[in-house]
Write a protein that binds this DNA or RNA. Structure first.
Lengths: 132, 132
DNA sequence: TACCAAGTTGTAATGATTACAAACAAACTA
DNA sequence: TAGTTTGTTTGTAATCATTACAACTTGGTA
């Protein structure tokens, strides 16, 4: 439950936070800050965009959500699925799919002498819907 | 030779283009637009930043260079090495290293029914220099 | 219930990138 | 080699996502 997730990471439970987190997790669209803002306006007409940015920053820092960024797109997208996975971005419709592949490099701790902390990867192409 | 590279992709050969391309290829720093601009100022004091942006866009479109973008950094970096490879970003010093690993997904043409055109990936952590 | 640290709001600033129009130059043609 | 055309460069102004900041408000503890 959403409130517990916030409690677990010591974030105060507010209407804005609960609904923003719920929105990101339940919809699978990997929304942008503006999409979150547009949705929040419908249930909280006075919300500020700054609140959206503050909130996703907190949620991201406490690992309740993840951020993703694609080349050529200048906005950050937010992902409520936090376990290791990749993404697929459709070049035609812009939809973003979660990709559950396991890469052999995912668990490496060292490459070329560098200590690895994080792995980011995504694919682009034409999605199965657009191929039809 | 730089001039030939431009000819091959039917880009007119200009002082600005040759030097910007040469700079990106010869230095291995994966420079930002501003780094390129600062360098170009030293050999062409009247160059415009717009020229830098126009040029990297052309070079990128014709595959003479590649663009890279990292989460949390809001600038694009340019890479003169165009064959398939990944990157490592040091979280401490910001240096970017080319990573020559071959991923098993690199040559896949289909994942989950989506047609794959491109693969982007990078690692972050502490580089071997900063570990010392 | 009162208090205070933390959260929210609105406005203004930032900074990378793009739009646009005028001036200019590369390279082809005669 | 000069003229022409088309693509390039330049500078300024605009854009747009995101952040800074300061005043106001609220959650949750004592």
């Amino acid at each position: 439950m959403i409130t517990n997730k916030l409690k677990k990471v010591s974030l105060k439970s507010t209407f804005q936070r609960e609904n923003i987190l719920e929105y990101i997790i339940s919809r699978k669209e990997h929304p942008t800050a503006d999409m979150i803002y547009q949705y929040m306006l419908t249930i909280s007409p006075c919300i500020s965009k700054t609140t959206v940015y503050n909130t996703v920053k907190s949620l991201n820092k406490t690992n309740l959500i993840k951020s993703i960024k694609f080349l050529g797109k200048d906005e950050i997208r937010y992902d409520g699925t936090v376990d290791a996975h990749h993404h697929f971005l459709c070049e035609k419709c812009g939809r973003i799919y979660d990709i559950e592949i396991q890469c052999q490099h995912f668990k490496k701790e060292n490459i070329d002498g560098h200590k690895i902390n994080n792995v980011y990867a995504y694919f682009t192409g034409i999605c199965k819907e657009c191929k039809k």
